[in-house]
Every structure is written in structure tokens, then in C-alpha cells.
Amino acid sequence: MSTTEKAPAPVTGRGPGGSGGALRKPRRRITDENGRRMPVWEVVLRYGLLLAVLALMIGPFLWQLSTSLKGPHEDLFSSPPKFLPSDPTFHNYERVADTIPVWDYALNSLKVAAANVVTNCVGAALAGYALARLRYRGRKAATLVFILAMLVPVEGIIIAQFTTMRELNLNNTLIGVLLPGCVSALNVLLMRNAFLNVPYEIEEAAFVDGANVWQRFTRIALPAVKGTLAVVAIFAFMGAWDDFLWPLIVLSDPERFTLTIGLNYLHGTFANDERLVAAGTVIAVLPLIVLFACLQRYFFRGVGEGAVKG
């Protein structure tokens, strides 16, 4: 993944990385991968296409944001459509909070997402370490259990998961929302692979120096897989914050809704109030966009690692 992100070292003339080098020159020359100057028509075509796709991918978000900022007297359906609110107001956000306990829902989502990060990081790191490093009878069987669990399509077992939750008396609780995914098999296998890629010799040296299993795990192995751990943390947060089907099934009491279920409820009940629904969606999506803007690298890295295993 990272190979595409890093600008290659400057190279003069023909050769790989010519484009990366060209970017650093004071006069920005747009070149192709051979270091040749890109013809003007290609530059125009590329940026034209990029901007068109940009409008398609980001436009709907901006339109939603714009709708949420439009006041009660502004026509939403004006023709031609108006992209900038004439008199921007946060009034709709106050109205969402008056209509549904949106901040409580956000807090519920945050609780589940934060707990999901902790349980996945701890649980997957521990289990991944046991699968990668520790030698014991039944290790292959344990690995197989996680591989099988990864292959089970969650959508196919939700009813049985719900029945299990009821037997445990945990349906309609946030714990019930959290539990089924709190140590995901995919994350365990990701951590296992990460530990396998750390040279074993360092841990052996630590062992010779008298470090026990726990010390080797926390002081040597864990710091070596920080990157993968960050990926697990981010995807655990995003997965829990964005999840819809499972909370929809397990939560029935409106007081315990997470944000996604609350939004669905808002849409189902006040579908005709576009400003209200728009404000609700902005509240739900903004934290993740901020998170993404700050930690992009790990989001992209996670796609690569997840796809290889998934």
C-alpha cells in the first residue's frame, strides 16, 4: 500500500520515479512515469476527469451539509438548486436534539465504538500472539477456529445471535451490541500475521535474558506491531460506529439506540423534514471524516491488509 503513497526518490532522466522527482523542482513540470513531459491535453483531461469524479463523490456530502444549514424560510426545492445557504443557521441541529436525544445516541455510539477498539486490540493482540509465537498442543486447531469464524457470513447468523443474546439476557443493551464483534476473527488473524513478520531472534534474546512470556509480549512483540494495531483500532472504531443491521436487531428501546439506529428512526418518522434528517446525518458522519483526515495512512493500509486476508 505504502509504495503508492511515497513519492519515489528523485531520479534524473528516464527511469522509475521520475514523476516524484519532478514534483520537487521549483518549476512544477507535470511528467508521466517515464519522466517525459505530459502533453497539455492529457493534463487537462486528467484534471477534468478528477474534478468530475470529485463532484460525484463529495458533492452529495456537501449538498447534505448545505441542506442542514438552510433556514426554515429558505426554499429547498428552488430551481435552479442553490448550493450555498443564503442565511446559514445551526437551527436544524438544535431541532434534531429536540426531536430525538441525538447527543445520547452519539454517546451510546461512542461508548460501543471505544469499547470495541479496546476489546479488539487487547483480544486480537493476545490471541494473535498465542497463534504466532507460543507453542502448544492444539495451536493448529485454535488457528482453524479463527479461520472458520472469519468465513461465517455474519448476516446469515444474526437471528441465532439475537436468540443467544436473549438467552444471556443481554438483548436491548449496549453490551449486547458490542459482544459479537468485540474480538473479530479477522483481527486475530491480522495480528497473527503481524507477529509472524517480527524476527523471532529478538524475543529469543530476551528469553535468554530471563524475560517471561508476558514481558516478551508487552515489551518486544507489541511495540513491533504498532502499525497493525493502529489499523485494528481504526477499523474497530469505524465498524462499530457505522454498524446498522446488528444494532437494529438487538436494540428495541429508543432510549438505548446508537446513532445509526436513531437516524433510521428519525428518517422513518420525520422523512419529510429534509433539513432535520440532513443535520442528523452530518452529526453522524463528521467525527469519522475528521478521524479519516487525521489518520488516512492507516485507513489505506487497513484496506490492503484486510483484503489480503478477507
Binding site: A124, V145, A149, V152, T164, A185
Partner: peptide
């Protein structure tokens, strides 16, 4: 912990 979660809530 991982085995328990996966066994009870997936398998």
C-alpha cells in the same frame, strides 16, 4: 478471550 467470543457469538 478471543476463542470464547468467537465460539459463543459466531460458531
Amino acid at each position: 478471550p478471543g476463542l470464547a467470543i468467537v465460539a459463543v457469538f459466531i460458531l
